[in-house]
């Protein structure tokens, strides 16, 4: 289980290395030392939150501002944590959740949830290990050679994080029409909040939360409606004396 988790974590770790590499470059460019940059990554393990965090520090924002920024940007992790709590096996309890909960990130969560089976402690520990190391060492590497690399390379790496998100979402959309609807709903709302001046007051962190909740509500509604029709047709088919899988 541990081994399988480690193996599943390899692609995430490679992706994290390149993303945190760009974080390292950016932090050093903002006046943080290599040690400070590394400390941020090993204690936070969150891309969007860290990018926002160094901005607050660089502009000498208040501690309240720091707390609220992190709360808003990372609130999605609460939803993921609740979601993951439904998927873990019976041994994955209290103290293990307190320790391994550190590993709840967008990608680790997505891979864990993509499994057919329940998620065990050993699998989740294996899954988060390499990404954590990739995130830390990528940050260190970026911070150390950030000043050496040409700007065009740093710029190109700016898209790496989003490329990874796309690689997670798109393949699953092929299997489930409802996911397609959910994804496009989320994108539509996110674009409305971004481009319409009326919504300028909505911060990017809040925009993600609003879009995600609204789109997932749509998906949940469709899914519940779908199940009802399936059950109805299932009963009818059974009445005809045939045996059919309700999933179709």
């Amino acid at each position: 289980m541990l081994k399988r988790g480690i193996r599943d974590g390899i692609p995430i770790a490679l992706g994290y290395f390149s993303v945190s590499f760009s974080f390292g470059i950016l932090a050093v460019a903002n006046g943080f030392s290599v040690l400070e940059t590394l400390l941020i990554s090993i204690t936070n393990l969150t891309s969007a939150g860290q990018f926002a965090g160094i901005t607050v520090m660089a502009t000498m924002g208040s501690f309240i501002e720091m707390a609220v920024t992190q709360f808003v940007i990372n609130l999605r992790y609460s939803l993921m944590a609740i979601s993951l709590s439904q998927k873990v096996d019976s041994k994955f309890t209290g103290i293990y959740r307190a320790i391994l909960g550190v590993g709840i990130t967008d990608e680790i969560f997505a891979v864990a949830m993509g499994n057919r089976n329940e998620v065990s402690r050993r699998y989740f520990l294996g899954l988060m290990t390499l990404p954590y190391l990739g995130w830390s060492f990528g940050t260190l590497a970026g911070a150390v050679c950030g000043n050496v690399l040409p700007k065009i390379v740093c710029d190109s790496l700016g898209i790496a994080l989003y490329g990874m998100f796309i690689a997670i979402v798109v393949p699953d959309m092929k299997k489930d029409m409802k996911k397609v609807i959910v994804v496009f709903t989320a994108i539509a709302i996110s674009c409305i909040l971004y481009y319409i001046p009326l919504f300028k007051f909505v911060s990017s962190g809040f925009a993600v939360i609003i879009s995600a909740i609204a789109a997932s509500l749509v998906g949940a509604y469709l899914s519940v409606k779908d199940k009802k029709t399936q059950t109805d047709s299932h009963t009818k088919v059974q009445n005809l004396g045939e045996n059919i899988d309700g999933n179709i």
Partner: peptide, 17 residues
């Protein structure tokens, strides 16, 4: 079902635009 869709919705909204 809502919780199942959350990761996809979050990643989509974070990515575009």
């Amino acid at each position: 079902a809502f919780l199942d869709y959350i990761p996809y919705a979050v990643l989509a909204a974070m990515t575009v635009p």
